[in-house]
Design a protein around this nucleic acid. Structure first.
Lengths: 151, 151
DNA sequence: CAATAAGATGCATTTCAAATACATCTTATT
DNA sequence: AATAAGATGTATTTGAAATGCATCTTATTG
């Protein structure tokens, strides 16, 4: 259960831009250097975000990239949906190619869908403005995915 | 955002067993044939489930595999946690190897954790007995992961 | 209008986890 | 002994994702 690094970088790039002071412009090279990642890879991420309408670019000297909309109008869920290449949790989510013989009467599928919807619903509660907030220092021990004690 | 086929097969195998009439025994070869998947692969799945205590095996003629506990005591979430090899949604979830420069004050991490917890909480509501239920025929159009209209 | 700084695009290559295959080995029944 | 089942370890393949490379377009500046 992982998101691709592509999605991870998309979110980081957007957060980076959201945190910049007005006018919130940076170059791809700058950002690649900051995160110590390949400029080429970040370029791909950038173009995808441009095509999805999340950022806009200015070419030439003095150019760079900026958010295309205010941070508080960009939902985290929206970004993940637009960026993550494959949201098919299991084979049978991909109806045209599904081979599983259980499908037509399998309650598991409904369960997994419900879980995925719950996942996305949380992301839909937050915007880039939230995600870009500084100062998060929660105790990591509270961030476990283990089942909480049922008592 | 996908679970591995390994996890998918683990769940299918358990559901298969849960659906069998008493005493709920089947051979790996039978199941592999039913799902049209490699016996070898299913063998790996089987062994993992044995080691996790979900199923028990009987060797030799007349043997096979069975649930080790009643289906209603086996949580879907429990199976996923035990089976899915990597629950690190993004790089920074893997603290020892994290390289991301945002980590220490990034609200995104908390958001993703919350989403993952919501995901698992749904799976924790259901057991194998639920997942093995027959007769699920929900309209697939209700199963979308798209953001619901906010009105 | 040449030089330079930025992003855009297409294609090729690499990487790595996951999946698959293969070869034995162990245990139980008949 | 023969056979039917699962167990284990190793090797190989596969495919999506990541990475690299080359070239093109657009804009600014002196």
């Amino acid at each position: 259960m992982q998101l691709t690094q592509f999605t991870d970088l998309s979110l980081r790039l957007l957060i980076h831009l959201a945190r910049l002071p007005e006018p919130g412009m940076a170059t791809i090279s700058e950002i690649a250097e900051y995160y110590e990642i390949s400029r080429n890879h970040l370029m791909k991420v950038t173009n995808s975000l441009v095509n999805q309408g999340f950022i806009m670019t200015t070419r030439g000297k003095g150019g760079g990239i900026q958010l295309a909309r205010p941070a508080y109008t960009i939902g985290v869920g929206e970004v993940v949906r637009a960026t993550e290449p494959n949201m098919n949790l299991v084979e049978c989510f991909d109806a045209p190619n599904n081979q599983c013989r259980l499908t037509r009467d399998c309650f598991l599928k409904a369960t997994l869908y419900e879980a995925q919807r719950a996942f996305m619903a949380v992301l839909d509660k937050y915007t880039l403005a939230d995600a870009a907030r500084f100062g998060f220092k929660a105790d990591l021990s509270t961030l476990s995915v283990d089942k909480p004690p049922s008592t």
